[in-house]
Write a protein that binds this DNA or RNA. Structure first.
Lengths: 204, 204
DNA sequence: CCTACCGATCGGTAGG
DNA sequence: CCTACCGATCGGTAGG
């Protein structure tokens, strides 16, 4: 009989990633000491190293899980509705109506990727490119009349607007997240649909 | 006769801030070693400490100068034109048509402020608030018909879009910076002007 | 006696 | 799971 991994191994690993995520988001990866993370988990430093053999591994696992989850969610958007504008709105919702955990990881993905060695950055950068590509597809669905090279800048304008909400927006404030989603969607679509030659589509 | 500080003292301090800024922007503040900065300057580490008595002082001086310059530039916008939409366009230009140096410092202000001790963060955060306040004033000029608490989120949508250009936009690419300024201005103003009750202004 | 630097090294810290 | 400790690193300093 070979010894098996404890049943709650994955649960504990996730709990560590959550505590570490909160800390990384608040202080930045280099400022967060392994001892701090251990304290935040109510565990010892050695216990941490049982689950993640290096600080980099912890950051990498956290970001990989986050980006893969985000991509899954975006890929699911077309199953929700066929209307391109509603798909766009669903995408905005994904970014704004996130859990605290997801918001933290998003901030970390933006700020702390550069503290990983190049070789570990690459697969994560590829996942980020995939997010951008999927967002671009959604934009093409909304307004197919632009020149191809223009979708990238508009995608980035949108993603910039959405990413920045992590910095300033607090769902506990006056503006409800639904209202913010609606305002961002209206603002962006109004300007984006006005671009390019947009002849009335011919119904078959 | 009292000895005076070398004539080129300020020039050299500026040259150090430029080299350090490039490094901080690329690797992040904690990853940039004083030795690396010295190497980038073609100088010795001791020389660095002659101009900045600590690494934190270097970061602080750089960000203070950058934010004060940015605020000066924004405050000058009303002198360029009276038309609110043209003022808005000038503001967008300030953010997009930046020098490499300014772009680097902007990235650093976003990412690395948290590596300063709290007491040194505070004055810089106040300068950042002033930038947001001034941007809000410009938005109010363009569309004065919104409820007061709504200007903050729209200001942040705009600033998010603008800040993110530091990440993805390369002026050397296909899209010229003027075109990007125009597209961002069109996109934002189209959606922003459609908001709120906007009765036709009565000409006197 | 000053400022502008250099080569060398110390004291403290953090990942593992 | 803890304490003790290492090898390496790095910000900051002292002598000339």
């Amino acid at each position: 009989m070979t010894r098996v991994r404890a049943d709650d191994y994955d649960d504990k690993a996730r709990a560590i990633m959550d505590s570490a995520g909160t800390l990384f988001a608040k202080t930045g990866y280099p400022n967060a000491k392994m001892q701090d993370i251990a304290n935040a988990c109510g565990a010892s430093k050695s216990m941490l190293y049982h689950y993640f053999s290096a600080k980099d591994d912890l950051l990498f696992a956290m970001l990989k899980e986050h980006l893969e989850q985000l991509i899954d969610d975006i890929e699911d958007v077309p199953n929700v509705t066929k209307d391109p504008k509603e798909r766009f709105y669903s995408f905005v919702q994904l970014y704004i109506q996130k859990s605290t955990k997801s918001r933290h990881r998003h901030v970390i993905a933006m700020n702390d990727l550069k503290y990983l060695p190049k070789a570990r950055q690459t697969p994560l950068l590829e996942l980020e490119s995939e997010v951008v590509r999927l967002a671009g597809e959604l934009l093409k669905g909304v307004n197919p009349y632009l020149d191809e090279p223009l979708y990238k800048p508009y995608t980035m304008m949108l993603i910039g607007m959405l990413n920045w909400t992590d910095i300033w927006y607090r769902p506990s404030g006056k503006i409800k997240s639904q209202e913010l989603c609606e305002r961002i969607t209206r603002l962006f679509l109004c300007g984006f649909l006005a671009e390019g030659s947009a002849p009335a589509p011919i119904s078959p």
